[in-house]
Nucleic acid binder design. Sequence first.
DNA 1: CGAAAATTTGACATGACTCAACTGGAGTGG
DNA 2: CCACTCCAGTTGAGTCATGTCAAATTTTCG
Lengths: 199, 199
Amino acid sequence: MEQLYRYIEQYVELSLEDKWLLLSHTSKRTYLKGQYIVQQGDVCNYENFVLNGCTRTFYLDKYGNEHVVMFAIRNWWTGDMGSFTTRTPASYHVQCLDDTEVIQFTHEGLELLYQKIPQLERFFRLIVQKAFVASEKRVIANFSKTARERYLEFLAKYPEIEQLVPQYMIASYLGITKEFLSKIRSELRNEHVHHVNLD
Amino acid sequence: MEQLYRYIEQYVELSLEDKWLLLSHTSKRTYLKGQYIVQQGDVCNYENFVLNGCTRTFYLDKYGNEHVVMFAIRNWWTGDMGSFTTRTPASYHVQCLDDTEVIQFTHEGLELLYQKIPQLERFFRLIVQKAFVASEKRVIANFSKTARERYLEFLAKYPEIEQLVPQYMIASYLGITKEFLSKIRSELRNEHVHHVNLD
DNA sequence: CGAAAATTTGACATGACTCAACTGGAGTGG
DNA sequence: CCACTCCAGTTGAGTCATGTCAAATTTTCG
């Protein structure tokens, strides 16, 4: 729990009492590699704070194609926020790409916590704001940049994730096919070889 | 102000005192068609609640191309949230496409209101959550649907906006060129004519 | 009315996709 | 320890959705 407290305390202050309340109204859970935390179509019952491991959130379209919406690693949040808040069927699957430990907030538990720890409203407002701003930037990046640029930026921004997840999921996150990502990578390799030879 | 009160009261309750506080720590302002509420590069000093009129938020890339991030009409919020909250240069321009009346919250004013009206934290958390969920859906739609599908969905979802703004901005919002949108529209017209003739 | 802005149209170019074949590990079991 | 399979990744040929550029047309509005 210390990890969660420290994370929240980056945004708002927590008393000992607050920490105790958080502890008693959440639960820790471990998922194995491949397991689903949320399944598209079910109501998402938990907001999840990732302690360690790695998850992906993806949408399965009517043709059976997967579209990766996001990854989550240590100190990220995951789940289907729309489903969680409105108690409607989830739009996405959330799957663990590794053994993954999370701290889970139920809807009921979180509403109770909002009442008892008012600054938690502020905390969640702040992190959702950040997520929203990042999501808008992604919309624009997808319009204004080529797949190659987006891939390079992804590498620069999330070097850890690049190691953890298979290429085809990164391709999906970038909105391209695995074949096309493979071609981009092959180009980059060739360019790199040339640079080395020129030295 | 009644319009703003009613809007907020869809999410949280407001006392008379709260309303008075809102009134005294915000200001109403009218912009003319073409004017900028926010300019990319400046710090965004206001969150704006649109009473009437219409705005567009757009990003100007390094090649001088415009990319429309969103439109805002009656009862929507606009501004550059990232810039407003972190007091950093705005990523976007916000321009009025019509004479537009807004209620403006300054950063200072809003922080004060958060203290005096704690349920305002909740209110903004809820609306930012909605905006975030919508933004994630847009990312996925851009990946999994053709330009034609996205245009049809846009028409269905925002019929008012279609009337108000020029085609080339809608094209930009959809992430395509004005020429290509024009071709899509021409296709749709042809199909429609055929259907009519078959009757 | 006339000029500027928005939209349309057409020829051509290209980024990214599809499909199918191939390569190369990482188990797994005999 | 080899053979087999399975899955991820690569490569190549052909195709398609969408972009670019330039010209023609329509609309808007002073």
